[in-house]
Amino acid sequence: MQLGVYNAILHDRSLPEALKVIGDLGLTGIEINTGGFLPAVHVPNFDDILESDTARDDYLGLFEGTGVKIAGLNCNGNPLHPNSLIGDKHAEDIRRSIRLANRLGQNRVVTMSGLPGSEPGTKQVSWVVNAWNSAALDVIDYQMELAAKFWSETDKLAQDNGVKVALELHPQNVAFNSANFLELIERAGSKNVGVELDASHLFWQQMDPVAVVRYLGEHVVQAAAKDVRVNPEYAAINGVLDNSFRRLGADEPRTNLGGDEYANEWPKNSAWDFVALGRGHDVEFWTEFLRALYEVDPNMLVNIEHEDVSLGRVEGLEIAADVLKRADAALTASLNS
C-alpha cells in the first residue's frame, strides 16, 4: 500500500515545500493536480515537459532525495459540460494529463466521468437524482450516449499511453455509483477506464465503501482517503440532498470552476460535512477500507484529500495522516499474524 496526499490543499506553497510537508507526515506519495477545476500549480512547465526530455528530467529531479514520489495525476473536471468554454477545456486537460502521465512514468490519471445537459442545445448541466418518470430516463440515455462516446475515444488514448483513467464516483456526474459506472464502461467498451474509490461521496449516499471496493474489484485502480460526518439533526430535517448553498459574490474569495462558474458557500446547518479522517469514521473502519483495497492491489495508491474547513491545511493533513498510518499498521499486523 502506498500512502500519500492529493496536492490541491498545498497549492499555497511551492512544490518543494509541499514535498517537505508530505515527507514530514511520514507519507511517500503526492497526487498532482494537472487541470480541470483547478490549475496545474505544481506543474508550471507542463507544455515543456510534454515536448522536452530535458524539461521532464529536470522536473522529476525535484523529487529526488525527498522520499516522496508522484502517486498519480488528478484532473477532476467536467469534460461533458455543454458550455464549451468549460467542457472542451476540461476534456483537453484530461487528454493532456494522460500524455503527461506517460511522460512522467505514471500510469494513473484521476478525473470525473462528467455530466452533459439534458438535451442538445442546452448550456447548463442537468443531473437526474431520481428517475421515477420516463422523461428522466430519456435524459439519462442521452447523457450516457454522450459519455460513452467521449470515454470510448479517451480510452483509446489511455491505452496508447499505458495509463488507467480512474473516475471518481462523484454525484452530479453520469457515473456516481457502481451501477452507472458499470453501465458507462459497458457502453463505451473501455478497457483502461476504472474507478478512483473516494469513500467520502459514497458515505453521504449511504453506500458502504468497503462493499463497493469488493463489488467492483479490479475496476478500482486508485483510492482517496477522505471522510464524511453526517449531522443527524439536520439530515433528519432536510436529507442529504439539501441544496441550502449560498452564492458567493464577486467581491468574496471564491474558487472558479471554469467559465463563469464558481464554488458556492457550504450550507450553515449542513446535513453532512467533509472531515479529516477519524472525525467521521474510526481507525477500525479505515483499516477495513485498506484491507479491501489491498485485496484488489497490494500496491494500491491511497492519497489523502483534505477538505475539512474547520482545520488548517497542514493541521488537517497531520490528523488524517495519523489515522491512515495507524490503519495501515493495523492492516499489516493482521496480515502478518
Rank of each mutant, 00 (worst) to 15 (best):
M1P: 14
L3R: 08
L3F: 04
A8P: 01
I9A: 06
P16V: 13
I22V: 14
I22N: 08
G26E: 01
E31R: 06
I32H: 07
G35H: 12
G35T: 08
P39W: 04
P39E: 09
A40E: 04
H42S: 04
N45P: 14
I49G: 02
L50H: 12
Y59M: 12
F63A: 02
V68C: 14
K69L: 15
N74V: 13
I86A: 05
G87R: 14
D88A: 15
K89E: 10
H90Y: 13
H90A: 03
R95K: 01
R99E: 11
L104T: 10
L115D: 02
L115W: 08
E119D: 03
P120N: 12
V125M: 06
A136T: 03
L137M: 13
Q143P: 07
K149C: 00
T154Q: 00
L157G: 03
L157T: 09
G162N: 01
K164L: 01
A166Q: 02
L167K: 09
P171A: 00
Q172M: 03
F176Y: 10
L182Q: 02
A188Q: 11
E196L: 13
S200L: 05
F203P: 04
R214V: 01
Y215C: 04
Y215M: 14
H219W: 15
K226F: 14
D227M: 11
N231S: 04
P232A: 08
D242F: 06
G249E: 08
D251C: 07
E252L: 15
P253R: 05
G258Q: 09
G259A: 13
G259R: 10
G259D: 15
D260S: 09
N264F: 10
S270Y: 15
Y294A: 04
V296G: 01
D297C: 14
L301F: 14
N303F: 04
E305M: 03
E307V: 06
R313C: 03
E315F: 00
E318R: 09
I319S: 00
A321M: 02
V323W: 14
R326Q: 11
R326H: 12
A327R: 10
